[in-house]
Amino acid sequence: MGDILTLVGKRLGLGLIILLVISLIIFFMVELLPGDIAQAVLGQSATPENLAALRREMGLDQPAIVRYLAWLSEAITLDFGSSIVTDARVTEIIGERFMNTLFLAAYAAVIAVPVSIILGVIVALLRNSIFDRVANVISLSFISSPEFFLGYILILYFAVKWGMFPAIASLSEGMTFLELLQRTFLPALTLVLVVMAHMMRMTRAAIINLLASPYIEMARLKGAPPWKVIVKHALPNAWAPIINVVALNLAYLITGVVLVEVVFVYPGIGQALVDAVSKRDFPVVQACCLIFAATFILLNLAADVGAILTNPRLRHPK
């Protein structure tokens, strides 16, 4: 067990270092801004006095490294300063939105993960049949479609033509959980369609790869029935690839969520990020990027740790 703990520990350490490097990138990228933030806020027509005053107010007269350390230590306590456009606290702007985004992603994941893994396994077992080929073409088509294309098609039919779900996924106080599910169904479905295609293809590839191994042939030649070959011989070795597939796609969900939120005007963090980018509200952009990157790294970390924990060679060292 000692080996596993060291491996997991090393992996966690690496994740932390990467996160740190990313925080450096996110912070110092803004330093590369032609001119500086104060200039960007006030525009070309600002007088030197105003600029100097704002710089002092924002602490821009201090060296970058000092400001980075201050920013980082506050960011760890989830305090990202205040917006330079509205003066509101960044945490207030994105706090609730982040929960909304998590809800949407979880909603999509709860549907997509089991369905696509089951479909992926079925397609892998039926490989090279007509169903496999049709599934291949369909999943490729979904992967190739931009999220907004799928989103607008769903709006056009489910919302405008058939009126089954609302086109705009707005949230209000005092909604019941069922109402919430109904309102957010279309954005969730869009995400499900995109992620499911990816996940199904990856599961299929992982399972086919596994079924080609000699020990599966051996199990067959020992007279094990097909279900037992899958459940007893393939599955215990399939966890690592499947965990990997799930984590990768959850990570993919995070990116997809930005576009979907914009299509459905959903009050999530993606929407906030896009607004902040077009208004050049850097504290908000930095906070959102850091949160997205942290989630992304966390998911990849979970995949790697999962793979380590389910590897029999590591669980039972020599």
Binding site: P214, M218, K222, H233, P236, N237, P312
Partner: peptide, 19 residues
């Protein structure tokens, strides 16, 4: 298979299930 006819493969290392 397994009961009346059995099989011994070339690479035992790959043919035993690692799990």
């Amino acid at each position: 298979r397994g009961s009346r006819i059995a099989y011994v493969a070339q690479s035992a290392a790959a043919s035993f299930n690692p799990a």
